[in-house]
Structures are given as structure tokens and as C-alpha cells.
Amino acid sequence: MSSFYEFLIAFHIVVGAFFIFVGSLGLLKLPNLMSRLHGPSKATTLGVGGCLIASMIHFAVLQERLSIQEILITFFLFITAPVTAHFIAKAYLHTAVDPEAELPPPRGSYGWSTYESATEARMVRRGPSPRPERNDREA
């Protein structure tokens, strides 16, 4: 293995490990959950991405073929990390935040969409007349 590839692999490992460390430091140090959510998301994309690039170069040079597993892991993590962060933020907004007191009023003619959809669903479920298609299905 030439020294250029060694340097490239070492560089990507160190950069990835640095970002993972910084992300967990953010998880440890930041004051509330919404700001804590910010750290590990960056760690997932940059940190694990750096380690996976290093692994890809290493095995491409060592075995002289491109391994597909790293690309799969990268795609899967990059697709799922935003979904996870969004779900945690949504659960936090619905369990711990009072929208009347803690959030600024929205500028448009609608309320905050996540709460609006929740109240709408509740109204549909508790409304006086059930939806007609549900009646058809039951009959």
C-alpha cells in the first residue's frame, strides 16, 4: 500500500472520529433537547461518513475491488438520520412544549401545522357524525 493511500485513509479516520466525538460532546453539553438533537445528526452524517469512506478506500486498495456494503450502510444512515431527528423533534413538541406559551405565533393564517393536524385528527375521531365511508364499511 502506497503512502498516499495510507495518508488518505488515516485522514478520513481521524476526521470521522473527530466529528463523532464533537457530536457526542454536543449531546452531553447542550442545554435542552432541541439543541441536543443538533449534535448527533451531524455526527451521523459526517463522522460515520468519514469512517465509511476510509473503510471503502482501505478495502478497495487491499482487495482491488469496490465493496458494496459500505455504500449500503452510508445510504441507509443518510436516509434514516433525518427521519429519526424529525420524529424525536415531533414527539418532543407534542409531549413537552406548550404551543400557546412557548412558541411564537405563526405568521400565516394557519396555526403550527403539527398541532393543527393533531387537533384535526382528534376532531374527526370525536366528531358527532362519523365519516360516511366508515359507515359503509361497517354496514
Binding site: I20, S24, L33, T44, V48, S55, A81, I88
Partner: peptide, 26 residues
């Protein structure tokens, strides 16, 4: 403090464990 903090911590732990596995593989 909250349950969601713990959920986030577990999620981050698994991601870091993936990085650890990859580094061990190298």
C-alpha cells in the same frame, strides 16, 4: 432529564457503535 433524551442517547450510541465496528473492521 426526559424520556426523549434517552431515546436520542440510545440512537446516538448505536450510530457510534456502527462507527466502532467499521474501525475494528479496518
Amino acid at each position: 432529564p426526559s424520556v426523549l433524551d434517552r431515546v436520542l442517547a440510545v440512537d446516538t450510541m448505536v450510530v457510534n457503535a456502527i462507527a466502532l465496528i467499521i474501525l475494528y473492521g479496518i
